[in-house]
Every structure is written in C-alpha cells, then in structure tokens.
C-alpha cells in the first residue's frame, strides 16, 4: 500500500467514522444518565429522512439539519416518555422506535416524492460542501505534513469538524461542569442526586434530548453530506455499530473517538478489498470485515480486553421514594 492509497483510506475513515462518532456520543449522554438507548439507529434514520427531504424542499442543507434534529428529538421524547415518565422497559422502547423509524421514513418519503422511498438527489447548497481549511492549497506541496493537511485534514464538510469538536466538548461537559457531574451521578446513583435536591427526571430528559440532537446531526450528515439524499434503510446498522463503539470505549468520550475511528477504518477497508489483498497477501472476505466491529464488541463485552462496566443505574427506571 503506498502513501497516496493510505491517505485515501484514512480520508474515507474520517468520513465514515463521523456518523458513528456522533451517534456514539449521543448514546454516551443517554447511557451515562442511566437511560439505555438501542434506538440510536432509528433516530439517525428518521433524521436522515427529515433532513434529506427538507434540504431538498428548501434548498438549504442547514435548514435540513435543523429538521433532522427536530425529528430525532421527537423520537427521543417518546423514548423519554416511555422510559422516564412511565418507567417502561427502555430496551423494548428502543426496539419499537427503531421499527417505527424504519417504517415511517419510507412511508413519508414515498408520500412526498414517490420515488420508492428515496428523496430526490441533492445538489448545490442542499448538500454540505467540503470546507477548504486555511493554507491547505499553499501547504499542499510541503512533503508529508502538507500532503496530510491538504488531503486528510482539510476538505471535509462542516459536520465532520463538528463531530470531532464534539469529543472534547463532551469530555468537558461531562467531567468539568456541574451539569456533567450530576448527569453522571444520575446514571450511577439517582437516589443521591434526588437527595441533593436535583430533579432526576429533568436531568434524564435533558440527557435524552442531547442524544436526540447528536443523533439528528448524525442522520443529517448521512443524507446531506456523506451521500446526496436519503435512501431507505440508509443508516444500515450504524446505530448499532455506534452502540458497539460506546461499549468498546467503556462509556468515555476520548475512547469513543478512537473506537469510532477504528470501526470507520474497518468500513473504509471493506470498500477497498483490492488494497487488503495487496497488503496481507490473501483475499479477506468482505463479510468478515463487515462483521469485525460486532465480533470485537462481543470480545470486549466478554471481558477479555479489560472490563466494560456500564453505568450502574443504567436501564432501571427511577422511582422516587415517598
């Protein structure tokens, strides 16, 4: 594998890791607050459809992004209603919302555009365009550093940089603010938070809403940046890979970045079977690469590579003492 090919693969790694990272951080907020969310997939899908449709109708990718976030938050609120207010089973709620998104997106897209569940292809301002970082062109010919800067770091859409910035931001919010401390506490021991006079319900709803926002961005990225429009089931299990990355990262923001980059790298490799064959010397079946993130997650869950311990109050509805 030569340098140019490597750069190409790393470049697509970054692009493919972005939706995973956003969804993974989304799950991080929710699960750190004690609400399991296996509905990341559904929220992303819903947001992808809403943003694709609205971006096409208005011609603005940013308006599309807003619509995606709203759609995703709506699903989040249903999840919150089921799991916080009515103390239902959070896992079942997630499963239900995934199916709801899977059905509704096609229903709405067919109804709006009549193209078999797709939105019409987006172009121009309806899509997020690549941003050229400053001096990228000037530094282009500087060996290695300039090339890396020009090819790999510069030239992505705004949402890629937003996703990357979300990592330190998430870390800062969770570990350096009062809100973050409370959020983590509510996922470990909600009684103590309640005793301190802080509303468990409000904290958890806030966390679930943040999850909605981040999943909304992830979905919008799928439909208006990574691809040009929404297609049925376009998230293709990314919500679950993000969930896997979250466990792989042991519910920590920086590890989430590494896990998502790793899984993004695997996805990028799966697109280039020729490169793998050239590097390892034999043909690796593509399905094996597809399955690798899931296999890795099972291995992590099994506790063979350190222990993945979820937030202690995760999945349990909080019943206030009387």
């Amino acid at each position: 594998m030569d340098f140019a090919t490597l750069l190409q693969i790393l470049d697509s790694t970054l692009r493919l890791a972005t939706p995973l990272l956003l969804a993974c951080l989304a799950g991080l907020f929710s699960e750190r607050a004690g609400i399991f969310d296996i509905g990341l997939e559904g929220k992303m899908l819903m947001a992808a459809m809403a943003s694709g449709a609205v971006a096409f109708l208005t011609g603005s990718a940013w308006v599309g992004l807003g619509a995606g976030i709203v759609a995703s938050i709506l699903l989040s609120l249903i999840h919150g209603l089921a799991s916080i207010t009515f103390r239902g089973n959070q896992l079942i709620s997630g499963v239900a919302l995934n199916f709801l998104a899977s059905g509704l997106t096609v229903l709405i897209a067919v109804n709006l555009f009549g193209q078999g569940g797709r939105t019409p292809p987006l172009s121009g301002d309806a899509r997020f365009q690549a941003i050229e970082l400053p001096f990228a062109e000037a530094l282009r010919d500087v060996p290695v550093i300039g090339t890396v800067y020009h090819e790999l770091i510069s030239g992505h859409t705004a949402l890629v940089y937003i996703a990357l910035l979300a990592v330190p931001l998430t870390w800062w919010v969770l570990f350096r603010t009062r809100f973050g401390l409370r959020l983590r506490a509510v996922g470990e021991n909600p009684e103590s938070v309640d005793t301190a006079g802080v509303s468990v319900v409000r904290l958890r709803y806030t966390a679930v809403a943040i999850t909605g926002v981040l999943c909304g961005i992830a979905g919008a990225y799928m439909a208006t940046a990574l691809q040009a429009g929404f297609g049925r089931e376009m998230t293709a299990g990314r919500g679950y890979i993000a969930l896997a990355a979250l466990i792989f990262a042991k519910w920590r923001p920086w590890y989430a970045l590494y896990a998502c980059l790793l899984f993004g790298f695997l996805q990028a490799l799966a697109l280039r079977p020729d490169v793998i064959e050239g590097t390892v010397g034999f043909k690796v079946p593509v399905p094996a690469l597809d399955a690798l993130p899931y296999v890795l997650t099972v291995i992590v869950l099994a506790g063979f590579v350190g222990r993945a311990i979820p937030p202690r109050a995760g999945g349990q509805p909080y019943v206030k003492e009387r």
């Binding site: 249903i78 209603l81 089921a82 799991s83 009515f86 103390r87 239902g88 089973n89 959070q90 079942i92 709620s93 499963v95 239900a96 919302l97 995934n98 199916f99 709801l100 899977s102 059905g103 509704l104 096609v106 229903l107 067919v110 569940g117």
Partner: peptide, 21 residues
C-alpha cells in the same frame, strides 16, 4: 407503501412493551 405494517408492528411493541405502565 407496504412499510405500513412495520409502523403498526412498532406501535404494538411500543404500547404493549414500553408504554405498558
């Protein structure tokens, strides 16, 4: 579209499973 049945299925799971209470 045929996906209507996925929506009904989702709602049944939601109401009988998650919004049970």
């Amino acid at each position: 579209p045929i996906e209507l049945r996925t929506v009904v299925q989702a709602l049944v799971i939601l109401f009988t499973g998650a919004l049970d209470n």
